[in-house]
Each structure stands twice: as structure tokens, then as C-alpha cells.
């Protein structure tokens, strides 16, 4: 399943993002998160991705960040999370991974 995040993921929006991702993870769904349209993501948004990824690992399901926009990638790199998440260049590549 592809989840598309767009625009600004900040303190206001991240609780809803977390809820959506966690519901999918509870169902042990394989998820590709399309981040190509993310103009800004703050730490609370990143934390939602971390929590979902950790749950996917526990459930042996897949959780891939795909087509990560430059602003999102800079934030991931700041905390060296680009070395932690499964990343794919494109959504199509993420689905195949």
C-alpha cells in the first residue's frame, strides 16, 4: 500500500499522520510512504515515521520511504536516520523492494 504525504508535516499534522500509519502497521500491512511532495517535515513527523518503522520491523512487514524530497532528506540526514530507514528512489522501486 502507498501512503502519500504532502506539504508541511508539523506539530499540527503529525498526530494524524501517526494515527494513519499506526493503523496500517497494526494490520501488518506493507507500506511505501511517498515523501516526494513533502515541503517540510519536523521532528514530530519524523518521530511518527520512526514509530511506524519500528512496528513494521516487529511485525515483519515492510515499511519503505520512497522518493524522499530534498527537505525531508535533509532532516533525516541531520539525525542520521537515512542510515536507518529502508529508502527507495521511487515509489515503484519501493513497491518492488
Amino acid at each position: 500500500m502507498v501512503v502519500t504525504l504532502e506539504g508541511e508535516i508539523d506539530l499540527q499534522r503529525s498526530p494524524a499522520v501517526r494515527k494513519q500509519l499506526m493503523e496500517l502497521m497494526f494490520d501488518s500491512r506493507d507500506v511505501v510512504v511517498d515523501l516526494s511532495g513533502v515541503a517540510y517535515i519536523d521532528s514530530s513527523g519524523i518521530a511518527s515515521l520512526v514509530e511506524a518503522y519500528q512496528m513494521a520491523r516487529k511485525n515483519n512487514s515492510r515499511f519503505v520511504l520512497a522518493a524522499v524530497s530534498q527537505p525531508a532528506m535533509r532532516v533525516l540526514q541531520l539525525a542520521r536516520l537515512d542510515k536507518v530507514f529502508a529508502l527507495a528512489e521511487t515509489v515503484a522501486a519501493g513497491l518492488k523492494a
Binding site: P15, S43, S44, I46, A47, S48, E51, L78, R80
Partner: peptide, 19 residues
């Protein structure tokens, strides 16, 4: 100042410590 659940607050706090 934010309305986040404790799990998120914990992750953000530890993220900043990493940074």
C-alpha cells in the same frame, strides 16, 4: 506547548540528543 503523545515526545527528545 504541543499536544503530542508521550511516545512521540520520547522519540523527538532522543532524536535531538542524537543530533
Amino acid at each position: 506547548h504541543a499536544e503530542l503523545d508521550e511516545t512521540t515526545i520520547g522519540i523527538v527528545t532522543r532524536l535531538k540528543l542524537e543530533v
